[in-house]
Amino acid sequence: MTTERRPANPVVGDVCAELFASLPRSDQRRKGELYVRGLLEAEGRKSVRNIAAHVGGRAAEQSLHHFVAASTWEWAPVRAALARYLEHTLRPRAWVVRPTVISKAGTESVGVAPRFVSGLGQVVNSQVALGAWAVGEEHGCPVNWRLALPGRWRESIRSRSPRIPESELAAHPLDCAVRVADQLQGWAGPPHRPVVLDLADADPVAVDRRLAGTPYICPVGEATRVRCADPALAGAYGRELTARRLLSTARTLCRPVTWPDPVTGRLRTTLVAGARVTLGEGTAPVLLLGEWTDPRERPRHYWISRLDRTPLPAQLRLARLTRTVDADFAGISLPVGLTDFSGRSYAGWHRHTTLASVAHAVRVLSGQAAGQRTACPA
């Protein structure tokens, strides 16, 4: 019994030729395209064995394993080429930086450690990867990645790969997030896109300090302490309050905003209001935003931003680009094997993730992303 292969995606060759031009050898460029085709077409988990079985049989397995885990090609130039390619094709509205928790059964995969995951409310044996995504009108694509590395992994990688810069081996998610965003912006060049930082547990003072000079928007908790710097809120002006308490005085200023929700495929209308606040002594004012589904209740979400010239409705739509990432991660990234790498190789993880990001881009740019999104929690 034979299995009928789907026709080869004609976009793969063009995209790979553009993005793998930095690879110094023709055999590396050929293997890069083979690997991407395997990520797009192989069934099941995208292990090297499954990819090799699909694109070249058992004879290709050792060759592709070496290409990913032990070869000499650098992943940063490929990511830089992807950033520039997406700048012209996807025309991103923003860079969305978000953490991805990758559960792992064992302890041997690079960067794995037991971590408390606030979104799940429990300790999970996992990797935490910070991804920077280029997000356009309908879809997003991951471009740049960092692993948040616990101490034992930093020491292990440093001893085995002393040429890796210390700045690459960050442990804290905020450090990783800032570095992937800065690097992506440098690759893509002007115009500078706003950064949508999806780090729910980040210290807002640290965020504002680390992203100085960068237009950004970042979620904060309702208990975040702020000082009202908005003369329009006369009763609260100059007082230190929680974000929830301050925005409760501003809800009469709410205005409706309609935005497309890629998770549900429907238009949603919510309410937004904002107030100028400071986050601490000597800090410049930022904008505190709140989003309501019912003005009689408390806001459901809170953000701080430095998007001074952007109207409130547009700021809310930018903040909601995280929903595009949620939908495309579930509908495109997971099927092309973004989280499927197993092994202790730090370079191998980065190369596999880079190639999976290229496969994701092929899906988006070839129009195959339509209809592939799967439902995520609202």
Results as ranks from 00 to 15, higher is better:
T72R: 15
I164P: 08
A59Q: 14
S366R: 02
S22H: 07
G213Q: 05
R363F: 00
P215V: 04
A370V: 10
L316I: 00
Y302E: 02
A361E: 02
T242W: 01
L247N: 05
V178C: 07
A81P: 01
L19P: 01
G106P: 03
E41Y: 08
D308Y: 07
V207G: 09
A181T: 01
L64W: 09
L279G: 04
A69D: 15
T269D: 02
W73V: 07
G38F: 05
F329C: 05
L312G: 01
S71C: 08
V12P: 02
R29T: 08
P335H: 04
R309S: 15
L279Y: 07
Q183D: 12
R58V: 11
G140S: 10
C141P: 03
V97H: 07
W292V: 12
N50G: 14
R163L: 14
A284E: 14
E18I: 08
P190T: 03
V117T: 11
R309K: 13
S159A: 15
G151A: 14
S22K: 05
H139K: 03
L279T: 02
V180P: 10
Q28D: 13
P335I: 07
Q368H: 15
G57A: 01
E138W: 11
S357N: 00
A250V: 05
A171P: 08
V196H: 06
Y85P: 00
V178P: 08
C376M: 12
L318S: 06
Q28M: 13
V112I: 11
P285M: 06
S305G: 09
R29L: 10
L307Q: 03
R58F: 05
R115W: 06
S342M: 12
V226T: 11
P114G: 11
S159I: 08
V257Q: 09
V272S: 08
G337Y: 04
A369S: 12
R29S: 02
H360Y: 06
Y216H: 11
T322D: 12
L334E: 14
T252S: 15
E168K: 07
E87I: 02
R84C: 09
V325P: 13
H192V: 15
G106W: 06
A369Q: 06
R91S: 13
R244M: 10
I157D: 08
H172V: 02
R84P: 03
T269A: 06
P114Y: 05
A314Q: 15
P299Y: 00
R91F: 03
E297C: 08
Y237R: 12
D208Q: 11
L288H: 01
L321P: 04
V112S: 04
R251W: 08
N9R: 11
R320W: 02
R306C: 14
Q183F: 00
T270E: 15
Y302Q: 04
Q315P: 00
R210P: 00
A170I: 02
E87T: 14
V263Y: 07
A327T: 03
H352I: 11
R146I: 00
V277S: 07
A8T: 12
R344H: 13
R276C: 02
A70F: 05
L147M: 14
T214I: 15
W187N: 07
L241M: 12
T264H: 10
R225Y: 04
